[in-house]
Write a protein that binds this DNA or RNA. Structure first.
Length: 938
RNA sequence: GGGCGCUUAGCUCAGUUGGUUAGAGCGGUUGACUUACAUUCAACAGGUCAGGGGUUCAAGUCCUCUAGCGCCCACCA
């Protein structure tokens, strides 16, 4: 059992083995248990198309730590897994796949295409799950849910119908974010704005009839002073960043206060290239300072202009096909791509002398979050959720602390968004997703199919509506959980379903309860057990996620939870940082700066990946990664492995077998054992607090430095000479065993592997109890005393190193302890120091009279004399001592001044003043000794 | 245009509610194959905590201003 321990830890031999073992034993399974507290995390469902990246690795490691920790603490801990159907992303992936066969989705037709997506999902959809298993994720896998499962879809439909019935879902024609490549509407969140280097084009719009200017109006560029002398105004200059939209202009607007244009309001312009007559209107929305102060109004292609259009009763001229080409309303530019048309239009304007100038202009435009195409603001009929009523309780829940964000600063981000929330466009013109439970009676609602302009099958019929707003006519619209047989109004059976599907996030926002099969009434057979599950685990405990999906998902889950469950979906939201490369760039495939977690796993091991990732993730700060970072984790695993080897090869299992729970009486323990026990439980206490506060990196680093620097470097070295003593056997075994438990959530595989080599009762470390704090063994005095002995040891090592005494050369050392208790400490532990500092002998002096031929130093409570007769650089030594003394003098001076300050004495707490006093006394003492040494050294 | 974060050792970063002489990992220098580990051990070097001003007995930590970097949000054509 012991001989097979190799010198190096080999993760490959353990990882798959133990994962299989855990799964086979159902250790990840959680069931409602009234005798235990529930702890539940729902996984942020990765896309079915997903491949594990560092963001997943970090996110899921944190969740696994929490789950394993709470499980060991005796809470019934459920980690609910699943995947997201990720409408657009998945559709894009499958479209790419069939493109290799030369097919478009339209060639297959809707049903065949959907079938292909399901096939694809069956074949590749479990990749990400397998990878999460590789990471060690202890999810309750048999519960795995998919947002397109039949039962999950029931929840989606239920929610749609309820919201519709409550008047919170409506259909209407609005300007939405349109991706011409994906050919679907997007929500505002799915169209993030990015800076682009654009231009501001100044275009002349001729007046139908020239007028004499009342003032030098009509010329607006401040620079143009030379050529400004038209006696008449025969045009107005407008500035635009998207000249191609001029084809859809139906007005030019100016500010009513703008003196330059006051006399022109109401006059008619001739829209160049199109020769449409358009009116000059006035509206306070227009910013006089921007551009020329005159703005072209394109109600069908700009959200602001849309509002102006409604307000002033303007025409809405749609000039674009859904794929971004211009339509028949664009005249000569018909069928050109929107950017191609821009060039052509500019060319033509220039030729006609109507392009006054072009300025470079930085602007930001929405980009499709799936394909990065520039978004087109596009007028179309879509479905929306009214958000304000849902937001109100969700704001309250965070404000009154029912939900807490960590780090706290995200609260503000959340509240800011919530308080300015806009209605949510939820219909998508793609095929992969939940069909809207909306049906139309062809008889009552003749126009319905025609107004769904974006539906791929519909013709690209241009939309030139005379005026708005459109009355939303609900007649003939049937929103229903099941397809109705006939129209409730007219009785017609000519009924068809809306072609659109729902935004993916419209299913994700139900995740914390839909994964528990809510609503139950639709599947009565399994109601009882499932209801119990939901009741027991909802609200869930913690949501762990990245900042970029606070709006997409977190905020919406809170709203859905409060609306449908009447309770928050989770109590804590832990937001971790974004994983970036070493230059601070976001890791992405296109940048080619990706570090693949699977590569790291095969090179360093899962535990190394997890530990390194966690230890460098400060709370909420972004993570900057390079591959070398994983060496620390690998080295730590190796260190643990080798410490275990040492212990196992020296452990007489009889010593610990029969009395696993027995501790020696405290008084009988030697100082090293007392010390390490005290340290372990001190550290454990901290670790508990840190995990509870989501400070995982600090917890991990605390365990690291305890194990490496205290347990291995000092403790094991101390007991090594007497490693066979029964007391040492029991304590070293105990500490190792408890430490492995505490480390298990961070490094599950190596801890399990070693656990099985130790004498043990439980079948797996992951079902062991989290170590209970033994407060009675925590003793700060012993910790201090031990530190003194370490201090002396270090001081001797330092002196040896200064005079280059070879390690194998044992030398005599004398110590003068300043007090009786110090003397006692040294006398009792002389052997220990002799060993640690490789001494020939350690003599305790009763006077600090300096022996001959020594170098010496002093630390708190002790003078240490190293007997050495060789040559040393006396000048250098004296300088070192002097420098030390000078520094100390400075410290003493500062402290003295502090103590002289009446304000300090009055206001500082007693313990601080006391500390200062002690500090001075000790400092003086040490200083005196240093000076003495300095003088004697010659 | 708002909001947030960062600036601490050569590099990458920790640093809870303000309280001894500011820490870690990596890197550097020196020495060591000490029978658990060279993925190791020991020792050393290295910091005006971005800059200015303020609050306080006490500031890396709180306030304010400035500079640089980064992120998020926003309908200025």
């Amino acid at each position: 059992m012991i001989d097979d321990l190799s010198k190096q830890y080999n993760p490959k031999e353990t990882e798959d083995k133990w994962y299989k073992f855990w799964e086979e034993n159902n250790f990840f399974s959680a069931r409602p248990d009234p005798s235990k507290r529930p702890f539940c995390i729902v996984i942020p469902p990765p896309n079915v198309t997903g491949i594990l990246h560092m963001g997943h690795a970090l996110n899921n490691t944190i969740q696994d730590i929490l789950i394993r920790y709470h499980r060991m603490k005796g809470e019934e801990s459920l980690w609910m897994p699943g995947t997201d159907h990720a409408g657009i992303a998945t559709q894009n992936v499958v479209e790419k796949a069939i493109a290799k066969e030369g097919l478009k989705r339209q060639d297959l037709g809707r049903d065949k295409f959907i079938e292909r997506v399901w096939n694809w999902k069956d074949q590749y959809g479990s990749t990400i799950i397998k990878q999460l298993k590789k990471l060690g994720a202890s999810c309750d896998w048999p519960r795995t849910r998919f947002t397109m499962d039949a039962e999950y879809s029931d929840a989606v439909i239920e929610v749609f119908v309820r919201l519709y019935e409550k008047g919170l879902i409506y259909q209407g024609d609005y300007i939405i974010n349109w991706c011409p490549r994906c050919q679907t509407a997007l929500s505002d969140e799915e169209a993030p704005h990015k800076e682009i280097h654009g231009a501001l084009y100044y275009i002349k719009y001729p007046l139908k009839e020239s007028t004499v200017p009342a003032s030098p109006a009509g010329r607006h560029s401040p620079q143009s002073t030379v050529d400004r002398r038209p006696s008449t105004v025969d045009y107005i200059v407008v500035a635009t960043t998207r000249p191609e939209t001029m084809l859809g202009d139906t007005a030019v607007a100016v500010n009513p206060k703008d003196k330059r244009y006051k006399h022109l309001v109401g006059k008619t312009l001739i829209l160049p290239l199109v020769n449409r007559e358009i009116e000059i209107i006035s509206d306070s929305m227009v910013d006089m300072k921007f551009g020329t102060g005159a703005v072209k109004v394109t109600p069908a292609h700009d959200p602001n202009d849309y509002n102006l259009g409604l307000k002033h009763g303007l025409k809405f001229v749609n000039i674009m096909h859904p794929d971004g080409r211009l339509n028949e309303n664009a005249g000569d530019y018909r069928d050109m791509d929107r950017f191609q048309a821009r060039e052509a239009i500019l060319e033509d304007l220039k030729e006609k002398g109507l392009l006054e100038k072009i300025e470079t202009h930085e602007l930001s435009a929405g980009h499709c979050y799936r394909c990065h195409t520039i978004i087109e603001p596009y007028l179309s009929k879509q479905w929306f959720v009214k958000m304000k009523p849902l937001a109100r309780p969700a704001i309250d829940a965070v404000k009154n602390g029912k939900i807490k964000f960590s780090p706290r600063r995200w609260t503000k981000v959340y509240l800011n968004w919530m308080e300015n929330i806009q209605d949510w466009c939820i219909s998508r013109q793609i095929w992969w997703g939940h069909r809207l439970p909306v049906y139309y009676c062809r008889n009552c609602h003749k126009q319905a199919s025609e107004s769904t302009v974006n539906s791929p099958q519909t013709t690209d019929k241009a939309k030139a509506v005379d005026c708005g707003p459109w009355t939303v006519d609900n007649k003939g619209i049937i929103v229903s959980r099941v397809k109705p047989d006939k129209c409730p109004d007219c009785g017609s059976s000519d009924i068809y379903q809306d072609e659109d599907v729902l935004d993916t996030w419209f299913s994700s926002w139900l995740w914390p309860f839909a994964t528990f099969y809510w609503p139950f009434d639709r599947r009565p057979s399994t109601v009882d057990r499932r209801q119990q599950d939901l009741k027991y685990f909802y609200p869930t405990s913690v949501l762990v996620t990245a900042p970029e999906i606070i709006f997409f998902w977190v905020a919406r889950m809170i709203m859905a939870g409060l609306e449908f469950m009447k309770d928050v979906p989770f109590r804590d939201v832990y937001i971790h940082g974004t994983v970036r490369d070493i230059e601070g760039k976001k890791m992405s495939k296109s940048l080619g700066n990706v570090i693949d977690p699977l590569d790291v796993i095969s090179e360093y091991g899962v535990d190394a990946l997890r530990f390194s990732l966690i230890s460098i993730t400060a709370q909420g700060q972004d993570v900057f990664l390079s591959k070398e970072r994983f060496e620390q984790g690998r080295n730590f695993a190796n260190k643990i492995w080798n410490a275990a080897r040492l212990i196992l090869t020296n452990l007489d299992q009889e010593n610990v077998k029969n009395d696993l729970c027995e501790f020696f009486r405290k008084e009988d323990l030697n100082i090293a054992n007392r010390w390490i026990l005290s340290r372990f439980y001190s550290v454990l206490q901290e670790v508990n607090n840190l995990i509870d506060a989501f400070r995982f990196n600090e917890a991990a680093n605390m365990l690291y430095s305890f194990f490496w620097h205290e347990f291995c470097d000092w403790y094991l070295e101390i007991i090594k000479p007497e490693i066979k003593s029964r007391q040492n056997q029991v304590v070293m075994f105990k500490i190792l065993e408890k430490f492995l438990r505490a480390l298990h959530p961070f490094m599950p595989f190596i801890t399990e592997e070693i656990w099985h080599k130790l004498p043990h009762e439980e079948s797996s470390i992951m079902v062991c109890a989290w170590p209970h704090i033994q407060e009675q063994v925590i003793d700060k005095r012993f910790e201090k005393e031990m530190e003194s002995l370490f201090g002396i040891t270090k001081l001797i090592r330092n002196l040896r190193s200064q005079v280059e005494i070879r390690p194998e050369h044992k030398i005599p050392v004398s110590i003068f302890p300043h007090t009786k208790s110090h003397a006692k400490l040294i006398q009792e532990n002389a052997g220990l120091i002799e060993n640690l500092a490789r001494l020939d002998s350690l003599k305790v002096l009763d006077t600090n009279k300096r022996p001959l031929a020594v170098i010496s130093d002093t630390i708190e409570g002790f003078d240490v004399y190293l007997h050495f007769s060789g040559l040393i650089d006396i000048v250098q030594e004296r300088e070192k001592i002097k420098a030390k003394a000078d520094k100390l003098r400075g410290v003493i001076k500062v402290k003295k001044e502090r103590l002289k300050n009446p304000e300090f004495l009055k206001k500082a707490p007693a313990e601080i003043t006391e500390k200062e006093k002690q500090g001075i006394a000790q400092g003086k003492n040490t200083l005196q000794r240093l000076l003495k040494m300095h003088d004697e050294l010659r």
